[in-house]
């Protein structure tokens, strides 16, 4: 009698558990499919060491648009810096968050009236918009813009990790050689011939200090 009672309890338990497992399995499959769909948009970036910075370039829907998924560890004070072809530049400190966070950094380019290169950079807490003059004599079409050299070390679509005392360059755009020659001939900005159109990066205050010291030593 006792054994029968135990069996009955076990059978009921299996039935209830099986029903819950099937339901949870269905919920999980639905959520997992949605997770995969969103992961395809923002990229798969496993965080193996939460104390490091992680960066992964993600695909965008148009040329001239760039985006990166970045992971910043807890207590990381981020400072964004950029430098443009005209020697102009700027920096902006982002407040000190206590928690680790992930965000998307986007940088969009477009040419206006063949004479102006517009750049719009956007992070979660800040955005920046500036225009760069296209030098006289330079026949820069939209098509040519997207053939500009983009070299930052994170231009591929792989996951890159950095220590918190390193500066991370997201974008380093320079004129291609044939445009660089025209750029030189147009003269007024000749001194900046070897300067990129745009450098854009971020790092901690300490990372930028180390970087600045290295640059000063090399000069």
């Amino acid at each position: 009698m006792f054994t029968r009672a135990i069996r009955l309890v076990l059978i009921i338990s299996i039935a209830v558990g099986g029903w819950i497992a099937i339901r949870q399995g269905q919920v999980f499959r639905t959520l997992y499919a949605e997770k995969m769909r969103l992961t395809n948009i923002v990229g798969y970036m496993p965080i193996e060491d939460p104390s490091k910075i992680y960066v992964k370039r993600i695909a965008t829907d148009a040329p001239g648009k760039f985006a990166w998924r970045i992971y910043l560890p807890a207590d990381y004070a981020e400072e964004e810096r950029y430098r443009t072809q005209s020697g102009g530049g700027g920096s902006q400190s982002v407040s000190l968050p206590v928690l680790a966070r992930e965000e998307i950094v986007r940088i969009n380019f477009r040419i206006v009236n063949d004479r102006r290169l517009d750049v719009f950079a956007q992070q979660e807490r800040t955005s920046r918009y500036f225009s760069l003059d296209v030098p006289q004599g330079l026949d820069l079409t939209s098509e040519a813009l997207f053939k500009l050299i983009i070299d930052s070390g994170v231009e591929d679509f792989q996951v890159h990790s950095y220590n918190t005392d390193q500066v991370v360059y997201l974008l380093n755009v320079a004129w291609p050689n044939k445009y660089a020659k025209k750029f030189e001939e147009s003269s007024p900005l000749r001194m900046y011939l070897n300067a990129p159109i745009l450098e854009y990066g971020f790092g901690s205050t300490e990372a930028w200090r180390i970087q600045d010291e290295v640059v000063q030593r090399n000069n």
């Binding site: 999980f28 997992y32 949605e34 997770k35 969103l38 948009i41 923002v42 965000e103």
Partner: peptide
Amino acid sequence: TRMDLVKLSRLSAN
């Protein structure tokens, strides 16, 4: 997965 989706939805503005 629900926690991951909250993060991914914010990142992708879903």
